[in-house]
């Protein structure tokens, strides 16, 4: 069997892909498997600083002309794959990270190489020689297992794999390849091209404390107050889909199947119903506290601590309390009568 980890894009994204794919492979594709790493980028990747994966036996480096023009990356993948024929039981697997760019490469590469693809894979197992891939479907409500019958098998993993090591592959010299024909499908396409770094979800995904607001937060002003609370507590702010679609928060702050997947020590959720799609974004948190005015809100099913009530009032009280405590420096012993109400 053989597996090929395909890394694409720019730094630091590639580094993130290495970590998540290593974590995935350690769980589901470890052991006696011949492993290659293909690194495709428009940047000059400094392999001396880059640490790939423990068991990798070959590293192939290819440079493309433009960052993030999928057609160029696909031409490279096709060229590197070549005409090798593998028997079904020898694989190979082409593995891609969870980001939208590389996930799309998985699907298109499978089509070009006459294989099969699956996006958002969170588990892989063999049962009686059958390869089964597990992923979330129905917007996170259900878990499906698919038997994948063709090869190559191009898998893009689900977000949320972490702690993959970056151990240096010892004694493996990266080989540089050039792919002659990078002309993309439609002649003069694209006509102009610009690529800028934007804010990404990195702060959010690395945070130890996440505050998540849902539609029940009610207004932009209340979101601002929650941001203040986040600042006081040293946490990062995220939100549900309705909140970002209404531009109360930036799109990079979206939590859930279509946004960031966080795994902080603590996650505070204010006014989110706890839909399946949102849950995917926060369920890896070690501890979850939720405030919702509806006692039967699904969010309470997976919260460690629940507060039934108006989240705006709660936020405002908590903010006042935290401010007072931080001013005095000591713990305040709560005295009901001293609080003007």
């Amino acid at each position: 069997m053989k597996k090929i980890m395909v890394f694409g894009g720019r730094m630091p994204d590639i580094e993130g892909q290495i970590k998540e794919l290593n974590a995935f492979c350690r769980l589901y594709l470890a052991g006696e498997i011949e492993t290659e790493a293909w690194m495709i980028s428009d940047q000059d990747l400094n392999m001396a600083q880059m640490t790939v994966t423990p068991e990798v036996s070959r590293i192939k480096l290819v440079k493309v002309r433009n960052p993030y023009v999928a057609e160029e990356y696909l031409a490279v993948i096709q060229a590197l794959y070549g005409n090798t024929h593998y028997s079904p039981d020898t694989g190979p697997f082409l593995l891609f990270g969870s980001g939208s760019f590389v996930s799309a490469l998985a699907v298109r590469a499978a089509y070009r190489l006459n294989g099969v693809s699956c996006v958002g894979v969170r588990k892989l197992r063999w049962q009686n020689e059958r390869l089964l891939a597990e992923k979330m479907v129905y917007s996170g409500h259900l878990v499906a297992e698919f038997q994948l019958k063709k090869r190559p098998c191009c898998l893009a993993i689900s977000p949320g794999f972490r702690d993959g090591s970056m151990i240096q592959a010892s004694g493996v010299e990266p080989e540089n390849f050039t792919v002659a024909d990078l002309t993309v499908a439609a002649g003069d396409w694209p006509r102009t091209y610009r690529c800028d770094r934007t804010i990404d979800a990195a702060g959010l995904t690395a945070a130890a404390l996440v505050l998540a607001v849902g539609w029940g937060i009610g207004s932009r002003e209340n979101v601002r107050q929650t941001a203040e609370l986040a600042l006081q507590l040293g946490g990062e702010l995220g939100g549900s889909r309705p909140v970002v679609m209404n531009a109360w928060l930036g799109m990079e702050q979206l939590l859930g199947t279509s946004g960031a997947v966080v795994a902080p020590e603590a996650c505070l959720v204010f006014g989110a119903s706890g839909s399946a799609a949102f849950k995917v974004g926060i369920e890896k948190s070690k501890w979850i506290a939720a405030v919702n005015c509806d006692e039967n809100a699904p969010i309470f099913q997976y919260a460690d601590v629940a507060i039934c009530g108006d989240c705006r009032e709660f936020i405002s009280e908590l903010l006042q309390y935290v401010n007072r405590e931080q001013r005095s420096g000591d713990e305040i012993v709560y005295d009901r009568n001293s609080t003007a109400k």
């Binding site: 059958r130 499906a144 038997q147 019958k149 979850i288 309470f300 997976y302 507060i307 009280e317």
Partner: peptide
């Protein structure tokens, strides 16, 4: 020939939820 759905399930993982209730919101927050 390519792929086949072999199972489709819900995933239930309930946490033990503790409700915090003060006499008013200020106490609850504290």
């Amino acid at each position: 020939r390519e792929e086949e759905l072999v199972s489709l399930k819900t995933e239930r993982q309930k946490r033990d939820t503790a409700f915090v209730r003060g006499q008013d919101m200020a106490e609850t927050a504290a």
